[in-house]
Design a protein around this nucleic acid. Sequence first.
DNA 1: CTTTCGTCCTGACTGC
DNA 2: TGCAGTCAGGACGAAA
Length: 276
Amino acid sequence: MPELPEVETVRRGLARVVGLTLTRLEQRRPDLRIPLPSDFAKQLEGRRLEGVDRRGKYMLWRFSGGPVLIVHLGMSGTLILRDGPRAPELHEHVVFTFSDGTTLAYQDPRRFGLMTLTTADNASQHRLLADMGPEPLGNEFNGPVLAAALKGRKSPLKAALLDQRLVAGLGNIYVCEALYRAGLSPERLAGTLRGPAVERLAQAIKAVLTDAIAAGGSSLRNYVQASGELGYFQHRWAVYGKEGERCPGCSPTARCRVQRVVQSARSTFYCPRTQT
DNA sequence: CTTTCGTCCTGACTGC
DNA sequence: TGCAGTCAGGACGAAA
C-alpha cells in the first residue's frame, strides 16, 4: 500500500520518461474514483512531461503548456514501465505511450486510486491538496510544528497521525513504525504529549521515512522491477504485520510480543513494553 | 469544530 | 475441490 516512501520511489523511477513527449494516452477504463473526462487523452497528447513532483502521497505530473495530472495510487495502484508496446494486463486502466516508444501503464485492481487534471496555476490550491499538512521530510516539519498540530487533539496518536491535514504522507504502516521508533503507545491521546516526546516523534517520523526511501533507493533495480512495476520494494518492518513476534528492541528472553489492536477500524501493531 | 464510522473495490485467504 | 465469508486499507462525506 503506497505511502510517502513508495510514492517517492515511484516518482524517482519516472525520471526515465521525464522530458519525453506523450504521444498516446489510452483510457481503458474511465470510471476511476474520480471519473476521467472524455477528452482526457486530447488534453495531454502531444505535450512533454516536464517533471514529476510529490505532495504527501500524491504525484503531480507537470506537462508542457500547463496541464498537471494529479495521481494517487490508493491501496493497490502501480505503474508499470515497458520498453515498448505490449498487450495490457488486467486492471490496467490508463496506458501512456511516450515518444521513444516507452509505455507506462497505470494498474489498480481495487480502484481506490485516482487521476485528475488540473493546471500548474491551480495545482497547489486543488481541493485534494489544499488542506494537506506539512511535508514530514521538509524543514517546515519539526517538533514544535508537530506539537502545535497535536495540541488539543483528543483522538489517539495513531488516528491523529493518519490525518493528512496534520502531516502529509503517513499511512497505516509508517505510523505504526514511527510510533514504535519513538517509543510511544498508539493509544495515547494526541493532545497529552509533551515537549520531549513530541520531539522524539517528529524525529522518528523523519527517520522512518528516510530509511524506507533509502531502502527503495538502495535496491535500485526495484525502481523498475523485472516485471516493469514501479514502487514496491521489500522493507523490513519492526512491528507492522508482526503480531505475536518479538520486536527488535526486546531481549530474546522477554516474554512480550508485538500486539495487534484495532483503532478506527484499522490494524495497529505495537510493542506494549517499549511503547508507553 | 472534532472525531468516528460507513463506503468504495477486488484479490487473497480462511474455514466449512 | 468449491464456495461463502472475511479482511485489507486511503480518503471522502455523513453522522454524532
